[in-house]
Design a binder for these strands. Sequence first.
DNA 1: ATTTTTATTCCGCTATAACGGAACATATGC
DNA 2: GCATATGTTCCGTTATAGCGGAATAAAAAT
Lengths: 252, 252
Amino acid sequence: MTEQQIRKRARGIDRAFDILDHLRDVKTSQRPAEIAQALGAPTSTVYDLIGTLVDHGMLEVTDAHGSVFLGRRVYFLGLAYRDYFDLTRQAAGMLDEITASTKETSQFCMLDGNKYTVALQREGSRPFRISADVGERTAIPWTASGRLLLGHLSDQEIRDLIPAEDFILPDGRQMDFDAYIAEIRRAHDERFFSFDSIVDTFTHCFAAPVYDQSGICSATLCIVAPKDDARKNYDLYKNVLQSAGDKLSKTA
Amino acid sequence: MTEQQIRKRARGIDRAFDILDHLRDVKTSQRPAEIAQALGAPTSTVYDLIGTLVDHGMLEVTDAHGSVFLGRRVYFLGLAYRDYFDLTRQAAGMLDEITASTKETSQFCMLDGNKYTVALQREGSRPFRISADVGERTAIPWTASGRLLLGHLSDQEIRDLIPAEDFILPDGRQMDFDAYIAEIRRAHDERFFSFDSIVDTFTHCFAAPVYDQSGICSATLCIVAPKDDARKNYDLYKNVLQSAGDKLSKTA
DNA sequence: ATTTTTATTCCGCTATAACGGAACATATGC
DNA sequence: GCATATGTTCCGTTATAGCGGAATAAAAAT
């Protein structure tokens, strides 16, 4: 076989998306036979694929002749795409504002499974070595955000979620679970949490929640500042973060 | 094999949508390995599928670790879904209004390949036998809408689109192509066309364009009225249709 | 640095999805 | 009405997609 591999059969998945794209192009519902013709694809295959696409809700039958158009599910997927990138774009703007007004490093953080990750970061005017890089996965209990992001879970759910070793601090000390839970509850009530960093000795971390439409804290905005800056500007930084978090929140 | 067929392999298409749905659920980008674990699906398969989904633009790589989230294309598909059903819903409302104010039968019509079809219909107070039922495919030149819907095409494109036999009227007479083109150009300029029905002897058909965002007449609103009603209310019907068409049009 | 774990790529086997074509159903023309 | 064309379903064959498992690479732990 040569570089130009000759394939006699197309993958179902490729043809499936061809069907979806085609319907998008023509902007109308069409019958299976029409679609098959338009794509130059084998009829029996197209019938089969349309069947499974309908089962998946990616297509909907629109009339008694069996015409199909794009289905509800593609719409919901589209919404998810938009929400994700809207949030990312808006969050990036917020970080710009926060860092512009405070000169401190700001971050947009989320959970990634049972770990904490920095999704976006804007470095302050005096960038120092931040504990975690963007995309790095960190133990949730080591972070200020890790108090806010679990606020909607029960004690047991929190215990189940976090691996036991994540309660052991970088310096080897064991965290107290009950004290951690108490901090989570307090952070949830106050819509804010801050503490001297656990992973280094010279920074203070501020975190404010971003809520999704169901009121769950789905992300946080953070400021990482040298301890003395943090002390001097505590109220300012807290207010800046909270109002930015409110702006990104979807709650009505 | 029994009723409960045991399958050892899943279809790629099914797993592909599982991946999309999963990302919608978690609302974050994830790495292939995570997704495979979350779905309990074979790793090698998930890697392969994610590759093709990325090729299709259904997924996008969001960071240097290879994390993926829903891609641009799902968004565009979602938009197409929304536009289609928005237009359908709004058009149905318009037909209600038109028929309420005129008592005549109103229709929402589109092209379906190289044929004309009635997509929606609201029957007037004295329903008579309409030439074409909803969903029926009719020769484009036989219809009033068939003047408006081709307004964006060149003479040659029109000639290529319409099968020769569609220029033969139901009574066997041959239509003159140049005269037909002239009517199309005039209808396009006037944003309106009406004539005594070709397919029956007692109705007059009115048609006004609905434009999509690129200014192409993608649909029409029509009134099918008995000839004498049509004569008496010509200006009223024309105005009602045109303003309704303007409301549905996407042009800025 | 070295080991251990986890993530990714590679590759060969085989269950089966895609396909062609026949059979059947439905619409269209005569 | 019958004939012709077109749309849909059914079914057997076979190219190959999905899979398991090995090999390799990258991270994490020691």
